[in-house]
């Protein structure tokens, strides 16, 4: 029972990870890409948290009533990771605003076309 639950957690993790990555790959809209990126990062939070959670355990507060504690470390780590994720998202969105100002679009293919136009033969890749 417990085993299948933990596997379930992993499956969710993988599903979130893959769908996030897929959005990054498949979407041309810069904001949607960032959303995909956030979803992708969320999967990591799950990856760390899920094994830290023990059934029937409680938060690691020393108390005579409990013998089983969850591992606090992953939670701490993920707090940091969430901060990093928020910062990344904020920066990404700020960049998109600037891109919109500069190019008048947030669709990557239109931007690429504009770039290539401006650059002429210079851009090869």
């Amino acid at each position: 029972m417990q085993g299948s639950f933990s596997h379930f957690g992993y499956l969710i993790t993988i599903l979130v990870m893959v769908s996030g990555l897929y959005i990054v790959m498949a979407q041309g809209n810069l904001i949607k890409k960032l959303i995909g990126l956030s979803i992708f990062q969320t999967s990591v939070y799950l990856l760390f948290i899920v094994p830290g959670k023990l059934l029937g355990a409680t938060a690691p507060i020393l108390s005579p009533h409990h013998a089983l504690y969850s591992n606090p470390l992953p939670h701490v780590l993920i707090l940091t990771a969430i901060v990093v994720g928020v910062a990344t998202l904020a920066l990404g969105l700020a960049l998109v605003v600037r891109v919109r100002e500069a190019y008048g679009s947030i669709e990557e293919d239109e931007i690429t076309a504009l770039e290539n136009q401006a650059a002429g033969p210079e851009i090869h890749a």
Partner: peptide
């Protein structure tokens, strides 16, 4: 869609 996001999309691909 993969084509449309050729740049950063293809990189992630």
């Amino acid at each position: 869609l993969l084509l449309r996001s050729w740049s950063s999309g293809s990189m992630s691909l």
